[in-house]
Design a protein around this nucleic acid. Structure first.
Lengths: 151, 151
DNA sequence: CCGAAATACATGTATGTACACTTAAATTAA
DNA sequence: TTAATTTAAGTGTACATACATGTATTTCGG
């Protein structure tokens, strides 16, 4: 769907302004699809993100700060997302021996299993919705990074 | 910044997968900049969005449903966002004469003034951060719409 | 070695999001 | 015309976000 239809408007002044809204809308669209898929497994978007980040270092432990710096939405409140994963017994949490300020996290066996099946479901879903060519995707990545130039 | 640096990873399997994360990250980046600019005026991102939507039809009134269908994040809880705008006296809210199920909203004089100065600040800010060429922006819009093909 | 500064995390508050459920009004069907 | 259905909003709950503040621990300067 064109953005004009999605937002029922035709008042974009410049392609730059439209691009800003288009990015926000596309992110919302993608997040909605991902979330509805994860909901079946009792996970939220950000809980899944944390599990994946932990998987990346497994079997090493990770502290809150390390996890936070790898999150897509970098102001996410990691401790509270962890709270919910611990409550579901997907993640274990202990105080670091090395630095007692740090809390360190690790996936539990249940966590690894949940993540495996969630990832499997997610990948099949994404395959059906993300259908642009690798060449187009590469170009899109280049343009998004150029869009964030002033970062 | 490249996405790999922003998320401290190098594990993107395909350009398609990277594009998904890149869109989510870029949206977060943009929303953060916009929000910090609006905060100075005591507005949130979504409150500003609602004010702009109302402006688009002003001096006509709009009902909750109409506003909702024009929001970027289409599951936003419009009544509660309106609550806050009414509390700040930026928007007036009455029951429709035509259909008593509907609540109709309109900008107040204060609302119009707030929006005007918020928009002014926002446009100058956006001009400094959204620096890609109109040609690149057009290509980006084309690719984002292609990305959402399966919508 | 000690006190100040920095760091890592937790917590509180306001706002927003997603979604189920309720209520009131309008529309439709019999 | 009345009963059933649909529609528009509001409300409740769980989760997430943005940000300020508090607390314990570590580090650093003197």
């Amino acid at each position: 769907m064109k953005l004009e239809e999605a937002l029922k408007t035709d008042k974009f002044l410049t392609q730059n302004q439209k691009a800003g809204l288009n990015i926000l809308y596309t992110a919302w669209w993608l997040k909605t699809i991902i979330s509805s898929e994860l909901k079946i497994m009792g996970l939220t978007h950000e809980q899944y993100n944390v599990l994946r980040i932990l998987k990346g270092k497994h079997p090493q432990q990770m502290c809150v700060k390390d996890i936070g710096s790898r999150m897509i939405e970098q102001n996410s409140n990691v401790p509270r997302i962890i709270d919910r994963l611990v409550a579901k017994n997907l993640v274990s949490r202990t105080t670091s021996d090395v630095d007692k300020r740090e809390t360190v996290m690790n996936l539990t066996t249940t966590g690894i299993e949940s993540l495996r099946s969630a990832t499997h479901k997610m990948n099949s879903k994404l395959k059906t919705i993300m259908v642009i060519s690798e060449k187009d995707a590469e170009e899109l990545n280049k343009l998004l990074e150029r869009f964030r130039e002033k970062e």
